[in-house]
Design a protein around this nucleic acid. Sequence first.
DNA 1: ACTAAGACTTAGTAGGTCCTCG
DNA 2: CGAGGACCTACTAAGTCTTAGT
Length: 597
Amino acid sequence: AQNLPVYQMLVLLGDQVISYFFNLFLLTQRFYVADFRWEEERYTDGSKWRFLEHKGPVFAPPYEPVPSNVKFYYDGKHMRLSPQAEEVATFFAKMLDHDYTTKDIFRKNFFKDWRKEMTSEEKATITDLKKCNFAEMNEYFKAQSEARKAMSKEEKLKIKEENERILQEYGFCIMDNHKERIANFRIEPPGLFRGRGDHPKMGMLKRRIRPEDIIINCSKDSKHPKPPPGTKWKEVRHDNKVTWLVSWTENIQGSIKYIMLNPSSRIKGEKDWQKYETARRLKSCVDRLRAQYRDDWKSKEMRIRQRAVALYFIDKLALRAGNEKEEGETADTVGCCSLRVEHIKLYPEKDGQEYVVEFDFLGKDSIRYYNKVPVEKRVYKNLQLFMENKEPDDDLFDRLNTSILNKHLQELMDGLTAKVFRTYNASITLQQQLKELTSPDENIPAKILSYNRANRAVAILCNHQRAPPKTFEKSMQNLQTKIDAKKDQLSDARRELKSAKADAKVRRDEKSKKAVETKKKAVQRIEEQLMKLEVQATDREENKQIALGTSKLNYLDPRISVAWCKKWGIPIEKIYNKTQREKFAWAIDMADEDFEF
DNA sequence: ACTAAGACTTAGTAGGTCCTCG
DNA sequence: CGAGGACCTACTAAGTCTTAGT
């Protein structure tokens, strides 16, 4: 406590009045404080803050019934729905164009939950979803969204200003000495649950959250948020061992949802920094760990062999840990520890390589992981052993789960868990790829292409995929047209330059000499533009099905990128947009050009 | 030791926004 | 200055890991 900055001393003294005014004072000095916030002391007792004040959540707007001329038909006959039933019907009507509404499970779940909202008369009449006609509702909402797009500038501005006002009022909190941005201060509106992949609960009604469902977390001495008039919070608590401001229990999985701070906040930034520091500690002992698990492949104990092979996959392939999941509650997806026999195939020899393992399974978000990898003979033999006498749907690693694995990892290095390997391998790959791909004499666009390629290598490693953009083919074509046009322009410019040169040779005067110079410059400029376009095309093509954002935001130590930018004189804005710069402010502040991950 | 709950990180997508180019 | 598309952000689902409870 002796070394705390003055303003935290005030807090320690328990003089909340003073610290409160100090908070206010600091708000006005924010730019100054922000520069030094990474150097503030952290709490050592597990508490996350001393002072927390906020205005509570923003609730979803109440339901607005559709106009009476927008009709719902059952079995061809117009039917007026009660407001409760109508609201749920509109959720379905809004999704009519979506694939979801054609899926059996979605329809079944929706219909079951919808019926719960109906009056007994409605329930008696509406017994078959196929006989429901939501078309007018659907058109109504489409028209609404068209109308919104067609609004005048003034109207749009008005909405924008209103949003800004709400943001200013509810979008910030005071945590200790800083005004911080809140990530998600709006409560999730009611609607139909859209799970990803083959989710058994898709289509279920996600119910409206009321103040009575809300738990508020703030400090005792703060101004507590007020529930809307005539309502009560479920609870107001003062738990400074957690970082969330608001929580409620969601009705689909029964899990808790939270309102927390923006990634730019001190509390998230510090945690992020810590994460990369842990990954860097792994760097310094990874050789030892690798030697260890290779050794464990030979263990006489099956559980140790399984642990060692699983760890090898996590390290080599950047697989996720793979917690068990409750069957039937979520989509059937797996990670490393939960791999089943049916998810891998062994080939003693394939495509000229020995001991090949073929992985084919659905991972997080039901994204397919498909990969063929040659492995060490010992790993191969072990896998054969693990698969002996098992059915396809049996666990590959039957003596292993994430808790066992993580306990082991914890013993090898303080703070080590399975996911640290993903962070470590992602970051080290970026660093090494940047080293390999950046050529000093290339121009800035080419260097950025190299950066994107390094980023891409990581995204591929982590299997971060995206659906190819709907407009991909077209935008690619457009770009090609531009390139062709630019090429024509270039040959024209070259021709002009040539004739200007010839002209200058004959005339030998200042004016024609100048003309040559101008033409030369023009050619150069067009060449550069062409190159930029071509680089852009390559970049885009290579990026078709790969999402770079996830790794950039979650796996790559930002200091690597910052250092790279400084080293090659690339403006940081070329790599990180505004949000990203805010999130990584700590790294931009901290890293110099010779930072080594 | 095991399980469930809780807290927090990681993930893809929808849809809005803003920029570019003709 | 309007269309088209790239980019960005909000949203919220789906993971991981820790903690609490038995």
